[in-house]
Design a protein around this nucleic acid. Structure first.
Length: 341
DNA sequence: AAATGCTGCAACCGCCGCGAA
DNA sequence: ATTCGCGGCGGTTGCAGCATT
């Protein structure tokens, strides 16, 4: 708003770090009276601070329900997954991590997770492989290292490869989401499900065994697609055309092929993504079997999933969930809902 | 031991949206 | 319909502590 002087312009008000005495005054006052109007609070409490500074100090540090200390692996993974969908909506992300503040999550992202994604060759904004050529080559190198696949005769279309990697990353996110759902007791789904009730009813209505089936299906689905992806390194150019149904897959994701000890060996970071991913099944088949375009087409033909309530299998439901026209709207709704929290 | 560089995080700044007047 | 005040949000800054030279 124009015309309202910022805190910094109000003469005589203290700025900078809070002293323990100030903290005590603020905590005592709020415990006795509640915060009420933040603007009025400093005078009433006897603090030489602006209301905004008091509010920030309380919400980011003094609040009794704040959780301190290192982020757990689960929290880190949840932040990454949520960021892939929500972007820098720190408040919305914090809403899914009880006890964590938006400021803390933002700081953790900027100081740890962003670097981690960059080192993996992923754009921390889009969660996709970085688009410039140098970064693309870096991504390729890491992807190859990650799967112990190496060839001296790389003759590939770089843009198409990047597209494939992106699709794989989307698949991976869906897979991770399902893993969280499967790993949690049904009674805790709401707590652990980062998307609350915005998940499709088809997903929320499943019992644990069906979720497990869905998760298993995604494992095979992802494994097969990763096999296709890595096979493309070795396939002659004329065999690299995308399967018909491939481009219809869309899910939104942040990670492609990260399950590799070697990747983490290259990264000088205080925590390990491979540790977090150790609970995942091996998603890269050493001897891929299902790699033909025809099979892919059969798997993801969206026309087969138009009626998930009838005789569709959980796998068909997955295909439905991944279908571009469904998921684009879904992600948009999801973001809108989170923005409206 | 001192100087310099780096990192992490608390706090600030400016803008935005909402509700009340 | 418009203005105003407030709370909230995301980006950025500044500094303390640690690491390196």
């Amino acid at each position: 708003m124009m015309g309202r002087a910022p805190c910094s312009d109000e003469s005589g008000l203290k700025k900078g770090p809070w002293t323990p005495e100030e903290d005590n005054i603020l905590v005592d006052y709020i415990q006795k009276h509640g915060h009420g109007s933040w603007r009025a609070l400093p005078k009433l409490a006897g603090l030489n601070r602006c209301g905004k500074s008091c509010r920030l100090r309380w919400t980011n540090y003094l609040r009794p329900d704040i959780k301190r200390g290192k982020f757990s692996e689960e929290e880190q993974q949840l932040i990454i997954n949520l960021h892939a969908v929500l972007g820098n909506k720190w408040s919305a992300i914090a809403g899914h991590l009880p006890g964590r503040t938006d400021n803390e999550i933002k700081n953790f992202w900027n100081t740890h997770l962003k670097k981690k994604l960059l080192q993996m060759g992923l754009d921390p904004v889009t969660h996709r492989p970085r688009s410039d050529q140098l970064n693309l080559l870096s991504s390729l190198q890491q992807l190859l290292t990650a799967t112990n696949i190496f060839t001296n005769t790389l003759d590939i279309n770089a843009l198409r490869l990047q597209s494939d990697a992106t699709e794989l990353a989307k698949l991976q996110l869906l897979h991770n989401m399902l893993q969280v759902l499967v790993a949690s007791p049904a009674s805790n789904l709401d707590l652990l499900n980062p998307f609350g009730s915005s998940l499709p009813d088809e997903i929320l209505g499943l019992d644990q065994s069906k979720l497990q089936n869905l998760y298993n299906s995604s494992t095979g689905f992802l494994s097969q697609n990763q096999s296709n992806f890595f096979q493309s390194f070795e396939a002659p150019p004329q065999q690299q055309a995308l399967p018909t149904g491939y481009n219809h897959m869309n899910g939104g994701s942040n990670r492609s092929c990260m399950k590799s000890e070697k990747v983490d060996e290259q990264l000088d970071v205080p925590y390990s993504f491979s540790t977090a991913l150790d609970s995942l099944p091996n998603l890269v088949s050493a001897t891929p079997e299902c790699s033909s375009g025809k099979q892919m087409e059969n798997m993801v033909n969206p026309n087969e999933f138009s009626d998930p309530s009838s005789t569709s299998t959980t796998f068909e439901m997955l295909g439905d969930f991944m279908y571009e026209e469904v998921t684009d709207a879904y992600w948009k709704d999801l973001i809108d809902q989170d923005c409206n929290l």
